[in-house]
Design a protein around this nucleic acid. Structure first.
Lengths: 247, 247
DNA sequence: ACCTTTATAGTCAACGTGACCATTAAGTGT
DNA sequence: ACACTTAATGGTCACGTTGACTATAAAGGT
């Protein structure tokens, strides 16, 4: 069978059905002032006009979902231009409930992104306003974005345990206190300072000490040594969160 | 804007583009005779006619990708009818490279399925033949299925470490030796028998001892006690594979 | 000066794990 | 009948990691 000059699988004609739209949705996280924030846009149209939603948009005919995610993030927030490579972007999973969008059949590939607390987002394009909203302090989100965001949060929390992902929330140079605060903020627990330090420093490749004598203060207290993210990506053994189980 | 009686997002008309097709691809694993096997179908049409491919098919307009995965698995193999709930099905990730299918734009949601070595698959529908093929002993697969299968294998191997997933490969009643063989087969390593036993039995909810005096032999050696899968889904602490790092 | 805050150094016991060894209970081969 | 093989099961022991905790150092605030 041939449709629009392309062969399609026998016995099944996709053009006979109503077309699928494919979108990407982004759960962009950052840690700001010791609190987890999510990047949200305010919807300017129906349905869900005025509600918060995850940034995202349609995948174009000649790009992959990952490319679409990067493009949308740049378009709607201007983040990519400033942070360059200092960005962790990871595919979460795909949401395909037939009724997840009341207008038409939309299959959405969700991504989670982690960035340091440097940039200030700016709204643009379809998204009237893009803002950092504190996680947990927001009304219900449009579509199934509440569900997506919850999944993204679970994934990020879990990946902190066995990967070096936490450094993605930190600027290029950071103190161990800042790194620890990432864990404490996302997990919502207090970690023992000396134990955390020991764990991080004895894990090869997690962080890399900056030799220069420069030290920096976070406000009060003794100045801390500076570190950079190391070359390792996974933690062996993992840094498990205390007591509470994740599932 | 209204298309086919449905409102579509302003400024972007999905019908103006060539439509996306959405498919599911399945990486179905089982452990048979101490070796990992994958369920593959032989392609009956171009492109890749005669090559092996992962079972899968189009997502229909009124079903989710997960429902499509279950339906395709049943249609192409008849597995679901026999194994009922004894099946672990998990979304892997979505593959969306624009050129992954030479015929048209196809976005595929990949799933991994784990089943015990009970059923015998039967080809049907589009799939001429569905067969268990030993993992690693096969020619290149069609499309990007080689890539999908490799990702699925990595995921399964990793999840054995921190979940109770291994029991999904076992029949309802199994011995600790059979459970251990699942790990050894997929990880490709030998595990210390007493240590494995201790780990499994001291992890609450991993397995549940069957009180009846029934014992069973796997051929030679002392008969082993039988167990059922427990209620736990995650392993704390994890059962890490020896030495070699996964990444 | 004294307190608060944070970083850093170190100790100690509990726990989990890997490496072993020993025993039990079946089948196999002579 | 006997030794040999195989696999399950029971147990020990040393080591490494971790959680809890104490102590010291270096900054700012009052």
């Amino acid at each position: 069978m041939t449709i629009r000059g392309r062969r399609v699988p026998g016995g099944y004609d996709p053009a006979a059905f109503e077309p699928f739209a494919v979108t990407v949705d982004l759960a962009v996280f950052t840690v700001r002032l010791g609190r987890l924030h999510v990047l949200l846009v305010e919807r300017g149209e129906e349905p869900y006009r005025g509600d918060w939603a995850l940034p995202g948009g349609f995948v174009r005919p000649r790009e992959s979902a990952g490319q679409a995610a990067r493009r949308e993030l740049a378009e709607e927030t201007g983040l990519l231009a400033r942070t360059a490579g200092a960005l962790h972007l990871e595919q979460l999973r795909t949401y395909s409930d037939p009724d997840r969008d009341p207008r038409m059949r939309v299959v959405s590939v969700a991504y989670a992104a982690l960035i340091p607390d440097l940039p200030e987002p700016r709204g643009g394009g379809d998204a009237a306003r893009a803002q950092w909203v504190e996680f947990g302090a927001r009304g219900p989100l449009a579509f199934d974005h509440e569900h997506i965001l919850a999944d993204a949060y679970d994934r990020v929390g879990a990946k902190l345990e066995y990967t070096c992902l936490a450094t993605a929330f930190c600027p290029p140079e950071f103190t161990l206190g800042e790194l620890r605060q990432v864990y404490e903020t996302i997990w919502g627990v207090a970690l023992d300072r000396p134990n955390f330090r020991r764990k991080v420093l004895t894990t090869p490749g997690f962080v890399q000490a900056l030799e220069g004598p420069p030290r920096r203060t976070g406000g009060r207290g003794k100045p801390a040594a500076l570190y950079r993210a190391g070359s390792a990506t996974t933690l062996h053994p993992p840094l498990l969160r205390p007591e509470g189980r994740n599932a």
